[in-house]
Design a protein around this nucleic acid. Sequence first.
DNA 1: GGAAGGAGCAGACGCC
DNA 2: GGCGTCTGCTCCTTCC
Lengths: 100, 100, 100, 100
Amino acid sequence: MADAENPKAVAGDNSGDTAQRVAAGELKSFIERVERLEEEKKAIADDVKDVYGEAKGKGYDTKIMRRIVALRKMDANEREEQGAILDLYASALGVTGVFL
Amino acid sequence: MADAENPKAVAGDNSGDTAQRVAAGELKSFIERVERLEEEKKAIADDVKDVYGEAKGKGYDTKIMRRIVALRKMDANEREEQGAILDLYASALGVTGVFL
Amino acid sequence: MADAENPKAVAGDNSGDTAQRVAAGELKSFIERVERLEEEKKAIADDVKDVYGEAKGKGYDTKIMRRIVALRKMDANEREEQGAILDLYASALGVTGVFL
Amino acid sequence: MADAENPKAVAGDNSGDTAQRVAAGELKSFIERVERLEEEKKAIADDVKDVYGEAKGKGYDTKIMRRIVALRKMDANEREEQGAILDLYASALGVTGVFL
DNA sequence: GGAAGGAGCAGACGCC
DNA sequence: GGCGTCTGCTCCTTCC
């Protein structure tokens, strides 16, 4: 029964083997669980899209909304650091009025 | 009450305005709905990761598994696309098997 | 010779027609020109990637570099407008220290 | 000379420093190379557009053409992917035609 | 307004 | 076990 614990090691004892059949079924099961979850994930992603659509219908600028969401997710420290590096580069290049 | 319909036009009549307060609350609500959904989405993404982890624990090669999932998705997409193309051909050229 | 000018109108005079054969060849030619150009385009995209890679090798932060490139491409007016709207929303939400 | 190797670490020894000046020139060079390549890429994209325009002028349906191009690309990718997957299967499971 | 292509980003793998 | 790299996904923009 070592094969059940090491599905990769079935090569050699081919054709008509039950262990392999089991392993294949197990693999299929994993794959289908993943696919099911991916579908759920996509459904939620669509819900998000709907919310933005509803907001857009009320006149809000969704692009800005997305940036706000991203901002709130972003760690304050990192935000600060990013800005500092950007300022440095921008001044080095002589880009004026940068607010990234 | 025009402000309620045009949330972007609140600039000018600032500070202490009720319309703006309402709009801000509405916006906040949208933002929070999005954030809630994003959390759910992340939870599912973590579940996916767990499934792969479990499979890996049983000796499966997750890289292969991911390619299988991707391939099955591609197959589905392309099958669909194939059908669409054939329909287009049929209606546009009245020809089957021109050079593809 | 109307068929040569209206390749979509060949339906009806099917099977063994030379005009159709010509049209198919012409179409194939167009397709191949497009595919050739797409290859060139991809080659250049790879070159861009190489430049970023070289810069990264010298210690530059490519993420910032990309934003700089995007900024320089962006119209100044639009930049200004974007910032104004964002400031408005940000103050409405009480987000502090926003520089997007 | 550490600054030359770590362009991000120039903060602090500002204004009038030669190392920074050099780094800025180097950065500018990278940026401009990227921008030049992006221009070339855009030129080719315009060429593609021209080809489609020419085809459209001859009566072809560009929507169909685009789908053909996309399909041929997908076919190529997937054919490649199929082969890779099969190889992986062969080595990992010792199985062909398990459930795909 | 909807679809298609491109760019940016996050997550996963492999190396050190 | 952490970091750097890289592929895949999502989002944005442009064109129709």
